[in-house]
Design a protein around this nucleic acid. Structure first.
Ligand SMILES: [Zn+2]
Ligand SMILES: [Zn+2]
Length: 722
DNA sequence: GCATTGCCGGTG
DNA sequence: ACCGGCAATGCC
């Protein structure tokens, strides 16, 4: 008697066993009874063993698939990833499917309905239809094969069907073989030496696993290199997968890909319907498209014959899923390339320190593009020492003067401030009481426009108190500044200039961001105020001055990755300021003009900054010189989660590995969210394999505890933003 | 994840 | 007596 071990889309680490009465293979989806309901699962093992009483086994209701759903490389990848991320296999497998497949839809192409003459239709005398001219026309065009040129409504077809003159036939659409007439349009741009070298290098290793880092400054022609390499891949008849950050799937990029190749290209963007996503998934699995371009989850697209993966802007944080199964698509892409034995190209102007360290260790091959196309002038950058200066909503007088000059020349100015709201504090002028969120014990941010206090840790809004609850004074004052106050101050300073604030508060409405971007792209004097939403990808040709209002926030953050992220954003922004004819200028306001890393970044550039930051990380044993895992737990009454994590902490201590560091339990970044109190415990180890083994053991232990059922918990491997 | 169960307090 | 809210439990 065969027993199928089935993974179900539930947050449970175990498999469920069912009698297998019909032939099936591993990787096929099945319908099974689960509790009182029916569920869709996927077979991960078939044998004759079970740990439970054979009599209590239920039968599989239906076998949905006629072949394993995933391609072998995806199957291996997902199984490996469930282990590495310590996430339940069922959740992982179902996450990697299009929604319709999760719901049990067949993994077949939608059938196309054709009309065909019946025997009666072939032979009937046309005069029988003389009273219905449209029907007569249609029938006669069926007979002489000219239906395609006829334009009649569906009712005419239906009438003929009723008279049994024509009939419907459902046909599976033929597979499209794009390879037979594949061609790439020639480069219009002449490649430079570095581009040529990069393409040639990848080309030589096009049949094997190899990881390349294409490090190219803004405007150095990375995309042109991608296109050339993809062209080579497609010419061998294989497909290519291109991963891009969420924000950069712009119409220009898509157009560039589509214009280049005479081959089907599928774009996976957020606007697709479930039906369309499934269609892309199937085309790709059947080898009917040549290229798939998409964001994070596109990594799980199956391919008939994948030949290459490209990860653009590999340092971008949007490759890390930040809820549920917290995988990193860039890291998994490398594993996929390895399993498939194909090359993978990571591209960035500002590579992550993890990737740079892998280059240093000769695990990745470095390809550099240092020449900017055209005649872009280098930006003028300066540190502005604001010690002793009076600030107006964070703006110093010298910065205001510079803004004036740039606006006067009819140019645009962009001001960065990574702090939303009017002010980060509201305090009582008389007794010093601070308005704090009772859940998080952290100050509320004061929002003037919406006249609310808002906790930026748990996102809870609150009405502004009329008077101080401690002393009764009505003299409550905002302290510090955010983007809202900055915008207001600028309106006072520049009453006749267009000012747009772009942050989470103003782009919450759908389409709002596009509106701002359009208005800015029209040109003319304009001040943009915003948080880091501004930094990503957008092209603002008329911006000549970029002001970083508060550099110190990034330099002295508690998050060890904050300086790296600042350097990446800074490099991108300064690379964009004042392209072509206009010289760009960047001004950084700081109380610490001597800060060594800041000076390295400005004077020697990102590469040298990265080198020195890596050295620092090595000395402090932070990633990538150690490996982290964050255990999260949440409950509803604020007791169990902390206790649960303390139990883990103590158990890990018992394991007795002295090189395992633990930090916590401590309240999570957003201590209260959606009715749950959230806690976390950070683990760090210098050896990845040993950390993995510890976690393997820990998960088995945790599953046995009673306390476990009282909390929602999960493990975040290689966490960021904590 | 989700349906089921049993317990609790509030209500008429 | 009845309902709504919820925590606990098991799912093969
Ligand atoms: Zn007071
Ligand atoms: Zn809060």
């Amino acid at each position: 008697m065969l027993i199928a071990h089935v993974a179900l889309p539930v947050p449970l680490y175990q498999l469920y066993d069912y009698n297998l009465t019909k032939p099936a293979q591993i990787g096929m989806r099945v319908k099974v009874p689960f509790g009182t309901r029916n569920a869709i699962g996927i077979i991960v093992k078939i044998d004759q063993q079970t740990d439970i009483d054979v009599k209590s086994l239920k039968n599989i209701t239906t076998i949905i698939d006629s072949e394993p759903l995933f391609t072998p490389d995806i199957w291996q990848l997902l199984n490996w990833a469930a282990g590495y991320y310590h996430y339940p296999i069922g959740e992982v497998l179902f996450h990697a499917m299009p929604v319709l497949l999760r719901q049990g839809r067949e993994a077949n192409k939608a059938q196309i309905t054709h009309w065909q003459l019946t025997e009666l239709g072939e032979n009937i005398d046309l005069t029988a239809l003389s009273r219905t001219p449209k029907q007569k026309l249609l029938l006669s065009s069926f007979r002489n094969n000219t239906v395609d040129s006829i334009n009649v409504s569906a009712t005419v077809y239906n009438e003929l069907e009723k008279k049994q003159l024509i009939t419907r036939v459902n046909v599976q659409a033929d597979n499209i073989m794009w390879q037979t007439n594949f061609s790439a349009n020639p480069n219009l741009i002449k490649l430079n030496q570095e581009q040529f070298y990069a393409i040639d290098n990848v080309n030589k290793q096009i049949h094997n696993f190899a990881v390349f880092l294409l490090e190219g400054v803004t405007g150095s022609g990375k995309t042109e290199v991608y296109l050339n390499i993809i062209s080579n891949v497609l010419a061998t008849g294989k497909q290519a997968l291109v991963l891009v950050p969420e924000i950069s799937l712009t119409p220009q990029t898509i157009k560039r890909f589509k214009e280049r190749f005479n081959a089907p290209i599928d774009i996976l963007h957020s606007g697709l319907t479930n039906q369309q996503r499934l269609a892309v998934w199937l085309r790709s699995k059947n080898g009917e498209n040549a290229i798939v371009v998409g964001t994070r989850s596109s990594l799980f697209t199956p391919f008939k014959n994948l030949g290459m993966i490209i990860v653009d802007e590999e340092h971008d944080n949007s490759y890390k899923q930040q809820e549920g199964w917290r995988y990193n698509a860039r890291d998994l892409a490398i594993i996929r390339a390895k399993l498939k034995n194909i090359p993978i190209l990571l591209g960035s102007a500002t590579p992550s320190l993890e990737t740079l360290n892998n280059v240093k260790n000769h695990r990745y091959q470095l390809l550099q593009l240092t020449k900017r196309a055209g005649h872009a002038k280098p930006v003028k950058q300066s540190i502005l020492d604001i010690r002793g200066l009076t600030l107006l909503a964070g703006l110093s007088q010298p910065l205001i003067e510079q803004i004036k000059i740039h606006l006067h020349n009819n140019n645009q100015v962009m001001l960065f401030l990574n702090r939303r709201g009017y002010s980060p504090l509201l305090i009582c002028h008389d007794c010093g009481w601070i308005a704090e969120c009772p859940r998080c014990d952290r100050p509320y941010t004061f929002h003037n426009q919406s006249q609310k206090l808002s906790c930026h840790y748990c996102d809870t809004p609150r009405a502004i108190p009329k008077q101080c609850p401690k002393c009764g004074s009505t003299h409550l004052v905002p302290i510090g500044f955010g983007t809202e106050q900055l915008e207001k101050q600028l309106e006072l300073l520049f009453p006749n200039t267009k000012i747009s604030r772009i942050d989470r508060d103003t782009v919450a409405k759908k389409g709002a961001l596009d509106g701002y971007l359009q208005s800015i792209q029209q040109g003319g004097a304009h001040i943009l105020v915003g948080t880091q939403i501004l930094a990503k990808g957008h092209h603002f040709p008329d911006i000549t001055l970029v002001g970083i209002v508060d550099v110190d926030g990034a330099l002295f953050s508690s998050d060890f990755r904050a300086t790296e992220q600042f350097a990446q954003i800074y490099t991108q922004v300064s690379g964009r300021a004042g392209r072509e004819a206009k010289t760009g200028e960047v001004i950084l306001q700081t109380y610490h003009p001597e800060h060594p890393l800041l000076n390295v970044l400005l004077n020697k550039g990102y590469q040298e900054f990265a080198k020195q930051t890596l050295k620092e990380r090595q000395q402090t044993l932070l990633p990538p010189f150690s490996y982290q895992a964050l255990i999260r737990a949440a409950d509803r009454n604020n007791h169990h989660a902390q206790k649960f994590l303390q139990l883990i902490h103590d158990r890990l201590k018992e394991y007795g590995d002295s090189s395992l560091w633990q930090l916590g339990p401590m309240p999570a970044n957003q201590p209260k969210k959606a009715g749950y109190y959230r806690w976390q415990l950070l683990l760090q180890h210098t050896n990845r394999q040993l950390l993995q083994l510890i976690l393997d053991k820990l998960v088995i232990d945790i599953e046995k505890w009673n306390e476990t059922s009282k909390v929602r918990w999960s493990i975040d491997i290689d966490p960021i933003n904590n």
